[in-house]
Design a protein around this nucleic acid. Structure first.
Length: 572
DNA sequence: GAACAACGCACC
DNA sequence: AAACGGTGCGTTGTTC
């Protein structure tokens, strides 16, 4: 039987304070809303023969888990499938997707809360901007229940609609080509894998976080005083209107943004090396570390001392995931001198294993390898297979230094042009054009691959990646097609691998706890390290290469997400 | 006063 | 001929 289920909750934090208010269920045969969760809901979710549509399924799942509901039913996240159905949607909210199939937004709950002012405007600790915190528990049942039921109705119809569209795409695909069906199967399995991984969470070293936060607050306050002394103007504000007069007085030319505003970005300030520019950079660095990183971990850690971040399965339009609350995919990777190692203030040291150790497995030069395999660039492939690093190989091929080759390599992956190349390398536009020509002359198959992808995007409007994911390419930016094939292709390799790694680890105590695009982190018990080569094999085999296989490196740490060392029992 | 744009910066 | 890709999250500034 097919159902759609939706919960209404007191808020967004099941691991801290929030509870289920009601659960709504919709099927052909029966529709109802109950307070909290009742036995009928438990029975539906406990039955493995049932299929249940949920919009942003992992959110509701967390609350079911909180009250001990066993979820055996096949869970289908209509938000994740929406990305497969139509990759270029800006918003995957139920309201937005419902509008596609003719359901107007039901904003009765929000209207009620606004009208009756059931919210508090507060400035969170360490922040400057006010936030609106709604109190959903104040919504009367007469308003909340019909609202929840309406959402399940829309979710139900959306789920059926998505399946119809995806089946059409699948049926219209020639049998010898990758089929979106395989992507659908994997994404549906992945929803459960991600739920398990998020529930595992990552342990936080609370004392360390708090200590570091205080240190960074002191650092940025010191920088503020310094800036005010240098400019003679207070109060300080990290704004172009504050900076412009000071730099004008010093006779420093200030570049502008695309919109014509003066910019004081890092790339502008860094070369100046004046006391003021350095104080501003110090302020920004410390402020960001104190708030975006340390403070957010304190705010978001659960009562269990773990961070349960949200892996957005449908995060990026080309198939990559993203991460929020907090975003653990952009935690700084700082390099320090060997002498400073002991007392270096590394943000990744906030994260410590809740069992015995972390294992970090990451694909080597994943995107570049996929590009070479797609392009059948055999000369380069042979070099890489013999162990030469891709930037060194490119440097030798073009007879330039490794840094130049690296810049060109990245620019290529991102579809960049000669202008940006010139800017990054600090060379003339003509020299940059020559370099680009040289690159494509040496890698003719890569050039062919890029041209083919771009032409396909121009004529057809979308591309299929190796697994069968369809990605729409904006009409005015066909040059991003190759990047979408590569980045999204890598994402699907990782997503396939994660589903298989999760299955493998069912027989072990060690579990996955993080994903950072081309890296997964396992929280492991001592004694299970022997599973690591098996995990690596799964990751390598996830991509059925034609010419160049994937390659995976393994690091371990018994102390934190930082301070890692190569895993050595596995010399191939 | 709140929503929206623009900017800046961390990661892959 | 030329076009750097994708995120999340914080601030300041503008607008209605």
């Amino acid at each position: 039987m097919i159902y759609a289920i939706d919960t209404e909750t007191t808020g967004l934090q099941p691991y801290k304070k929030d509870k289920i208010l009601c659960t709504a269920v919709w099927s052909e045969a029966r529709q109802f809303v109950c307070d909290g969760v009742n036995d009928e809901v438990r029975t539906i979710l406990g039955d493995p023969t049932n299929t249940v549509f949920m919009h942003n399924a992992k959110f509701d799942w967390r609350f079911f888990n909180q009250v001990g509901v066993t979820v055996n039913a096949k869970i289908i996240c209509t938000m994740a499938l929406a990305r497969l159905m139509k990759s270029d949607l800006h918003s995957l909210s139920l309201a937005n997707l419902g509008a596609l199939i003719g359901h107007a937004k039901d904003d009765s709950v929000k209207k009620y809360l606004d009208k009756n002012k059931h919210y508090v405007m507060e400035i969170p600790t360490g922040k400057k901007q006010k936030r609106k915190n709604y109190d959903f528990s104040k919504v009367p049942r007469e308003i909340l229940h019909p609202y929840a039921l309406q959402d399940t109705k829309v979710t139900y119809e959306l789920g059926l609609h998505e399946h119809k569209i995806l089946e059409e795409i699948s049926n219209n695909t020639p049998p010898n080509l990758p089929n979106v069906k395989d992507v659908v199967i994997n994404e549906n399995k992945l929803t459960r894998v991600l739920f398990k991984m998020e529930h595992e969470g990552v342990k936080i070293n609370h004392d360390y976080v708090e200590h570091q936060r205080r240190k960074e607050v002191f650092n940025y306050m010191t920088a503020v005083k310094k800036i005010e002394n240098l400019t003679g103007v207070r109060p300080f504000s990290d704004s172009r209107f504050y900076y412009a007069p000071a730099f004008k007085k010093a006779g420093v030319p200030v570049p502008t943004t695309d919109k014509g505003n003066p910019t004081f970005a890092k790339s502008v300030l860094e070369p100046l090396k004046t006391p003021l520019s350095e104080a501003i950079l110090a302020y920004r660095k410390a402020y960001k570390r104190a708030n975006t990183y340390y403070q957010s971990y304190i705010d978001l850690v659960g009562n269990d001392g773990l961070i349960h971040c949200n892996f957005r399965q449908a995060g990026a339009y080309h198939g990559r995931m993203s991460c929020s609350d907090p975003n653990l995919q952009n935690v700084p990777k700082e390099s320090v001198d060997a002498e400073d190692l002991e007392d270096a203030a590394l943000i990744r040291r906030c994260f410590i294993p809740k069992r015995d150790l972390f294992a970090m497995l990451d694909y080597d030069q994943m995107e570049y390898r996929l590009m070479l395999d797609y392009a059948r660039e055999m000369e380069m492939i042979e070099q890489v297979k013999s162990g030469v690093d891709v930037h060194t190989a490119a440097a030798e091929l073009m007879r330039v230094d490794r840094f130049t080759a690296k810049v060109i390599n990245f620019m290529l992956l991102y579809g960049g042009g000669a202008g940006k190349l010139a800017e990054t390398l600090g060379i003339s536009l003509n020299d940059a054009k020559d370099l680009k020509r040289l690159f494509f002359a040496k890698l003719p198959n890569v050039k062919q691959f890029f041209n083919n992808a771009t032409r396909t995007a121009e004529t057809r409007g979308y591309i299929f990646n190796w697994l069968g994911r369809r990605v729409y390419i904006p009409k005015d930016k066909p040059y991003v097609a190759a990047n979408s094939l590569i980045a999204g292709g890598c994402a699907d390799i990782m997503k396939v691998a994660m589903v298989r790694v999760d299955a493998l680890l069912d027989d072990f105590e060690s579990k996955m706890c993080l994903n950072v695009h081309d890296e997964i982190v396992l929280d492991m018990v001592r004694g299970e390290e022997n599973v690591l080569p098996l995990v690596r094999k799964i990751m390598v085999d996830a991509y059925p290469h034609k010419y160049l296989p994937m390659s995976v490196g393994i690091d371990v740490s018994y102390t934190s997400w930082s301070d890692k060392k190569p895993y050595e029992h596995d010399t191939a």
